[in-house]
Design a protein around this nucleic acid. Structure first.
Lengths: 115, 115
DNA sequence: GACGATACAACGACAGGCAAAGGAGGTGGA
DNA sequence: TCCACCTCCTTTGCCTGTCGTTGTATCGTC
């Protein structure tokens, strides 16, 4: 079973989180589920990684947090939501460009399976 | 100017080095030049990164080193050459598989420029 | 003999990922 | 009612790969 190494993903966790946040504010647990689903179960972000990414990105101004109380009907729990900022959008775009370049470079050194 | 971040490449420097070594033994300076050329100048590996990768990979059994004295005609200098091992081949193959998987995952979170 | 290119190495700092652990509220079933 | 399990978040401290800095030495050539 091939697993995704943390080294590869390193630096792209932030990008994935920002991607999710482009569909509107969300919170830790939900984001983690979305990453799992969107990657077809191939990648499950660790909780500590996720929350330390929040801290880092908020400090860098890429995201903003706000607290949402439980709904009036009592459903749900108190949560910390995150919203992407303009800087976050910018950063995301840069990471996308960077990814394209990186991919190009790395693939010069990869031989396809079966070759 | 988009630059390749060390975070992205992290863990794939080894792979690139092993790729080069598949064409036969080589040494630091030469490998570094080949990486630069093959990536079309887009990626230049840092010397310290390169040599610490050698140490690590030799310890892990992925490469073997040997010293070559200057040629009899006096051309060239004393160098430490590296040769890929069977384990190194195996490791390289695994990294290639891993790369394909990782690429698939990351691209689920990347929006193409211009979109 | 000065200068740039070649060739290697030790050291320490840094950042991101993660294991381990803890804790509290919510939900559903036996 | 009680228990298990899910939701939701946080702290601490370690590990690993990268890289800035610095140092050393040889080679070619002008």
């Amino acid at each position: 079973m091939v697993e995704i190494s943390s080294d590869v993903i390193r630096g792209y966790n932030d990008t994935m989180i920002l991607f999710i946040l482009q569909n509107g504010p969300s919170y830790g647990y939900e984001i983690s589920k979305q990453i799992r689903q969107r990657s077809d179960g191939k990648y499950v972000i660790k909780e500590t990684t996720l929350y330390s990414a929040f801290t880092r990105m908020e400090k860098n101004g890429y995201i903003e947090s706000f607290t949402a109380e439980p709904a009036a009907d009592g459903s749900g729990k108190r949560r910390t939501y995150y919203r992407i900022t303009g800087q976050g959008q910018q950063y995301y775009r840069e990471k996308c460009e960077e990814w394209l370049l990186t991919k190009e470079v790395v693939e010069q050194f990869i031989s396809k399976a079966g070759a």
